[in-house]
Structures are given as structure tokens and as C-alpha cells.
């Protein structure tokens, strides 16, 4: 790299060098965007060759079933990472929603049965938690990671309080049906998660709000000067993230038929890993729905391989921790001048 520059410097003006620099930055950016896709293809090929039946329809359907809940969560997290913030309250909101929905539909703990209204109510309350996080973040001007860390603790606490230690079992038949139904040979849960993901695509790519999200992550001052309501957009992003977390909590409850906050435990980390693997930057402005999909798929594949190979689940988490550090290191932009804190 430096050799090229010295060579180029010999017979070009400083202005030409500056343009060369910009052009090579553009080239690097392209490589960065396609790297996750290439990696995904490589992993798939290696897995298909070495593991029997990896590429079989059955395993593919299974893969998509496994990634249904992470995909829902990743949809919301993508928005948050795009504005350069982070939401650590996701596990809490997910656990809270899972616990609450179990109590609002037919269950073994109480005689309340609101049916579909219960689901709607849960989603509204879950989203409300996100609105509060976002509001406190922009109004009190506290960094998002700390405010969401605290909110995560609060919302987990409320979640546990709803059932006071003994979780409720869901007896509503609709949950059974959703969990066991398949359409075109693909489980209904997968379809639901794909449609939430599709909704995320629509919002991010085809609305003014989606573009405002990109603009804030890339250049907040410029976004503000064009008249974008930055605070409102940020609050909406946190609300959206909580909305997906809430949906994920309900889906998890559908799958397990039991409502407790622990369904949210250990969900945050894989999701952030996946989104970053897809090429989103923690500094904001970089990433997208397609990249997130690639990231989640890649992560699920890796996980799947580790399971097939027979790695202890505890070690899997350890491996995740290492993967995210490597991925963040590769995607973060840095110069000698910056000091991170």
C-alpha cells in the first residue's frame, strides 16, 4: 500500500494524489461490502462438502427455522446500529414480552384470556419500553448503551414481577397451532419472522424515515441541517427495535409455550454478532437489511456446524465472543488520531 503511494507520488501532483486516495477508499469500501457474502458462500461450500446432508432441503428448512427468532431481533438491531447507537435492553424487552403474553392469553396461572388482543397489548407495551429508552436517551443526553443497560435491568425486573417467580404455561390452542403448522413445507414461525424482516426492509429502503436513519448515522449534523427531526427519528428507531424484540419474545413464547424472562437471556449477543458480521459498523451509517440477512444466515450456519460437530454450548458462546471482536475489528474505521473510550 505505502509502496504504491510512494511510487505514485513520484510523478503526480498533490491534488492528483488526493484524488487517488479517495478512489482507493471507494475501492476498499466495495471490498468491505462484498466480503461477508463471499465468506458466506465459502462457509456454505465447505460445510456442504464436509458434512453429509448439509445442503439437503431438510437441513435448509431447519436452518431457516433456527434463524427465525434471531432474524426478527436483527431487523430492529440493524436500525439501532445504523444510527450509531446500541440497545442493550433487547434481552429484557424480549423476556418481558414473552412473560407478559403468556399471562394475557389462556394459561395455567390466571383466568385472563384476551386472545389476539393480548398479543397486541404485549407488543404495544414492549414498544412503549423502547419509546422510553429512546426518549431518555435523547432528552437526558445519556449514551445509549448505558441508558439501555439500565432499562434492560428495569424491564427484566418488571417481567419477573408479572409472574412472581413461577412462570405460566400457555394453554391457548392458537399457540400450539402456530408452532406446529407448516405452509409449503416451511414452518409458520419462519414465515412470520420473514414477514417481520420484510416489513423492516420496506421501512428501511422505501420510506423517508429509513433514509433519515442512514443520514443520521453517516452525518448527524448534515441530517439536522436538512430539517430531519433527529430526536424523533432516534426515538422511533428505539421503538422499532423494542417492537421487534417484543415480537421475538412472543414467538419464543409460542415455541416454548411457557412465559418467563429467561427466554430473552443470551439473545443479544448472537444478534449483534450477526449484524456486525453482515457488515454493519458500530459507528453507524453502514449496513442494511440484505447485509443483516447474510450476517444472520452466516451466524446460524456457523452455529449449526458447531452443533453438528458436537461442540459444548458453553464453548459456542465463547467462540461467539471471539467472532464479534474479530468482526468489529475488521469493520471499524479508525485513524491514528482517534482515541476510543
Amino acid at each position: 500500500m505505502k509502496k504504491n503511494e510512494i511510487e505514485y507520488m513520484k510523478n503526480h501532483s498533490v491534488g492528483a494524489q488526493f484524488k487517488y486516495k479517495i478512489a482507493s477508499d471507494v475501492k476498499k469500501e466495495k471490498i468491505r461490502i462484498y466480503a461477508p457474502l463471499i465468506l458466506l458462500v465459502c462457509i456454505t461450500i465447505v460445510a456442504s462438502v464436509t458434512i453429509d446432508n448439509f445442503f439437503s432441503p431438510k437441513n435448509i428448512v431447519n436452518l431457516f427455522y433456527q434463524m427465525s427468532i434471531p432474524l426478527v431481533l436483527a431487523t430492529g438491531v440493524t436500525f439501532v446500529l445504523l444510527i450509531g447507537s446500541i440497545d442493550l435492553s433487547l434481552e429484557g424487552v424480549m423476556g418481558f414480552s414473552g412473560a407478559l403474553v403468556a399471562l394475557l392469553v389462556a394459561n395455567t396461572m390466571n383466568s385472563v384470556h384476551l386472545g389476539w388482543l393480548g398479543i397486541v397489548l404485549t407488543v404495544i407495551l414492549g414498544t412503549g419500553a423502547g419509546v422510553i429508552t429512546g426518549y431518555l436517551h435523547v432528552k437526558l443526553r445519556i449514551a445509549s448503551f448505558i441508558i439501555s443497560y439500565a432499562m434492560g435491568s428495569i424491564i427484566t425486573g418488571i417481567g419477573v414481577l408479572t409472574y412472581k417467580g413461577t412462570p405460566a404455561n400457555v394453554t391457548w390452542s392458537v399457540f400450539d397451532a402456530i408452532a406446529s403448522e407448516s405452509v409449503f413445507g416451511v414452518p409458520l414461525l419462519t414465515w412470520i419472522s420473514l414477514s417481520i424482516f420484510g416489513l423492516g426492509c420496506l421501512i428501511l429502503n422505501y420510506t423517508a424515515f429509513g433514509k433519515a436513519v442512514y443520514a443520521i448515522g453517516n452525518n448527524e449534523a448534515a441530517a439536522r441541517s436538512t430539517g430531519i427531526n433527529v430526536n424523533k427519528t432516534k426515538i422511533m428507531v428505539f421503538a422499532l427495535c423494542a417492537f421487534t424484540a417484543s415480537c421475538a419474545g412472543i414467538l419464543a413464547c409460542v415455541r416454548l409455550k411457557i412465559g418467563q424472562v429467561s427466554i430473552g437471556v443470551n439473545q443479544l449477543f448472537p444478534v449483534i454478532t450477526s449484524v456486525v458480521l453482515g457488515g454493519a459498523s458500530l459507528a453507524g451509517g453502514k449496513g442494511g437489511m440484505l447485509q443483516t440477512f447474510i450476517g444472520v444466515l452466516m451466524f446460524t450456519e456457523l452455529n449449526n456446524i458447531l452443533i453438528i460437530v458436537g461442540v459444548d454450548p458453553n464453548y459456542r458462546q465463547l467462540i461467539q465472543g471471539i467472532i464479534i471482536i474479530v468482526a468489529v475489528t475488521l469493520t471499524i474505521t479508525r485513524s491514528r488520531k482517534t482515541i476510543t473510550q
Partner: peptide, 29 residues
């Protein structure tokens, strides 16, 4: 079970009180 909630609220309040409220132009992520 209330402990988590109380600690979370305390954290938010304490952080808010000690935060620097002068730098309005600073972008907080």
C-alpha cells in the same frame, strides 16, 4: 424481584445528575 428495577432507576438518575449539561452541540450516540 424489585431489586433490578430499583437499581436501574437509581443508575439512570445518578448518571443524569452527573452528566455534563453544557455541551449541547456534542453528538451523543
Amino acid at each position: 424481584l424489585w431489586k433490578d428495577i430499583v437499581i436501574g432507576v437509581i443508575l439512570i438518575i445518578a448518571v443524569f445528575i452527573n452528566s455534563d449539561k453544557t455541551g449541547k452541540d456534542v453528538i451523543i450516540k
